[in-house]
Design a protein around this nucleic acid. Structure first.
Lengths: 186, 186
DNA sequence: CGCACTTCTTGACATTTATCAAGGCGAAGT
DNA sequence: ACTTCGCCTTGATAAATGTCAAGAAGTGCG
């Protein structure tokens, strides 16, 4: 998808406005292992992932927890950092070569000038993010490890072709061994 | 807290504006067992809970899952319903007698007229909700049942005095028996 | 090619958590 | 006062999941 199309999809911009706003984006490249953002940094950029995969993670005790895998055509950001200029809560790191369309900080902060109803559109965008997270919480409350795996598999089957399984296991709230055994018998 | 204070806290309204907007709220009363909202309904109201407790839940398979307990001085709403006018995803039901300050639908829909930067303020509010949910997901990824219990206990100790434990167990992603055993040895 | 490294799998075993069944206890209703 | 009901606990047992250790397969790199 073009940046313009992504803006139309995610923020309900008109084609004309989307084309105009797309010019405020730059193209970023990351190599495998590079960081999009590190925990504690405050870089208020909003990106769309053109290609590649990123992993959002944070340390907890003696292990690293994968909170989210970012996939092509979706947005990438630490929302806490983006919205409030607070230190990022997650490390966001490239799992392979990534190409991003990035709205840099200075442009992000002027979006409400560039788009009259930007706050409304961003609010709606956030609302959809919130719903997605609500659903995710619900899977932890109501599903077994195997069922959570099957749900992810149904929702984003291509994840399993591109992302090391132990990261997906972490994101599903189980160990790599458990995920391996679940997959063996399915 | 007064409605005006709640508006100042949750939406960063100035004292003057908050007092003005507070007049758009009405007082609602619920008896134990009454529904604030039922799954599938579309009632776009935003409330603050003055007193009492509400339980947000949904059926899953053969059991009911408690997704959230609403406590005094916080807001109450099904965000998906509120923001988008979609059918509510959660049943929200009174656990005891509740008093609410409610912004009814017709006033909610005119908030961006009543408050010039309402969308911005609501966006920020949503952003904080999102962060809270992110943290909650992280507890499922990184903590054991006992640790999740201890975290909730530390965060909202009074919950355990007012809400049946089996609902809290469900919200923590464990059975009532497990919660009971955890509490015995702590 | 040979080596280091990551990923994935497997087995044996330990731990956590769920399930099922029963009983106690207190509040509410008749 | 008795019954009923909701809530909580407990025990016995089963099932799910984690831990630890080992090894196989693939990949990149000297």
């Amino acid at each position: 998808m073009t940046t313009s199309q992504l803006l139309q999809t995610n923020f309900r911009l008109s084609p004309e406005k989307a084309a105009e706003v797309a010019l405020l984006f730059r193209e970023d490249h990351l190599k495998k292992g590079d960081y999009f953002l590190r925990r504690g940094q405050t870089v208020r950029k909003l990106s769309f992932l053109r290609s590649g995969h990123l992993r959002g993670w944070a340390p907890a005790g003696d292990k690293d927890i994968t909170q989210w895998i970012f996939t092509p055509d979706y947005f990438v950001a630490d929302l806490n950092c983006l919205l409030f200029g607070l230190p990022a809560r997650w490390n966001i790191q490239a799992l392979d070569g990534c190409v991003l369309a990035t709205l840099p900080e200075e442009n992000y902060l002027r979006m409400s000038e560039a788009v009259p109803n930007w706050d409304l559109l961003e609010k709606e965008f956030l609302g959809r993010c919130f719903s997605t997270l609500e659903d995710r919480v619900f899977t932890f409350l109501s599903l077994s490890a195997r069922e959570r795996y099957e749900a992810l598999q149904a929702w984003q089957p291509d994840l399993f072709d591109h992302v090391p399984l132990h990261y997906l296991a972490s994101m599903l709230g189980m160990t790599a061994e458990t995920l391996s055994r679940i997959r063996r018998v399915s």
